[in-house]
Design a protein around this nucleic acid. Structure first.
Lengths: 194, 194
DNA sequence: TGACAACACGACCGATCGTGCTATTTTCGC
DNA sequence: GCGAAAATAGCACGATCGGTCGTGTTGTCA
């Protein structure tokens, strides 16, 4: 059953995820999180043995929500090119929909040079996501929507790049044509793949 | 003349830039930087009035070196497509050549949601860089290397995306084909622009 | 309803944070 | 080589860091 503890735990992770997207997984402090959630620091430690475990749990939570909001809904959409397009649009919406942008991207550039279990976990989820993208592209090839000699992993690479640029233009440069540019780039990528 | 103070100042900024590329501009601590440079904390503070000023100086230093190592050498290269290609290659080399990757990229995703003068300064340099790229593309158009109806800013956007993906694949995913993928994507972009 | 586990708290630890102020050393023009 | 000026160290500050401990409160189930 779902106990009281599970609920507060969820509440904490919810705040923590939003906070981490702004200040980073490393910049997130237990004291600040306690203040934000209206709890005591020691109250938090009852749920998470250490800051590192909290960071891992944040990533895990983000992973679940990403799967729920971005990936899974596309399984009901058309296979092939339609699904690839749906993945892209939902990915953009995922970034737009949360304060601080995509927590994975924020963490990626923060942790890329800091060895440890948190970095490993993050790298694993991102590698998994890249594979997921490549698989969707492969299906589009099999369906005959995309060229037979198309490299699915190269497609995933470029798709990721378009997303990263979108993130930067949107969040740092405050460019309001960021989404237009992203879609234009993606359309070009798709067209060249047919 | 160049005094003793100027030298240590340079030395400090050198270390600080490398350090910040790993732990971030915010994660960089005065104490750690003092230890790294073999100075006392107060000794550092004689050079920088505050941590924020240090961060600004780090960005300024990075900007100078980027201009010197990436941009300026291309001015002597061919105009047009050749220069655009040279910019891309030197950009990749810039990332490869320093521990922690490109300090601008690291800072970009760290500061995008933290208002303040440091974020503003960073956003300004990146907007400037994007404009520089777009200008180089415009020249390639004028030279007849690229299509007349090509949007230089869209080109710059996609070029930036390819770089960002390269950074992520290289640093986080440890993909050793990161450079190959980047060049393949860039070649595709250039070909489609002719 | 009573017993027990789950949960949360306040107080506190040593370390480090960024940042002052003052004293000492080092450098450099004369 | 002397004296002023620049450069650096020493030391202390309040705040906060991640984390521990003992205790009280509260929810859950027999």
């Amino acid at each position: 059953m779902v106990t009281k503890g599970d609920e507060t735990r969820e509440r904490i992770l919810d705040r923590a995820m939003a906070l981490a997207a702004v200040v980073g997984l490393e910049g997130l402090s237990i004291g600040e999180l306690a203040r934000e959630t209206g709890m005591s620091k020691s109250g938090l430690f009852a749920h998470f043995a250490s800051k590192e475990e909290l960071q891992l749990k944040i990533l895990e939570t983000a992973r679940e929500r990403f799967a729920r909001d971005v990936f899974e809904p596309t399984l009901r959409a058309t296979r092939g090119e339609g699904r690839v397009r749906a993945l892209f649009e939902r990915w953009l919406a995922w970034e737009r929909g949360r304060v601080g942008g995509c927590p994975f991207v924020e963490a990626a550039y923060e942790l890329d040079d800091r060895p440890g279990p948190v970095r490993d976990a993050l790298a694993a989820t991102q590698a998994e996501w890249v594979e997921t993208l490549a698989r969707a592209v492969q299906i589009a090839i099999d369906e005959g929507h995309f060229r037979g000699d198309l490299d699915p992993r190269q497609f995933a690479y470029e798709m990721y790049g378009i997303f990263l640029a979108y993130h930067l233009y949107h969040r740092l440069l405050d460019a309001d044509d960021a989404a237009d540019r992203a879609r234009a780039a993606f359309d070009r990528l798709v067209s060249a793949s047919r």
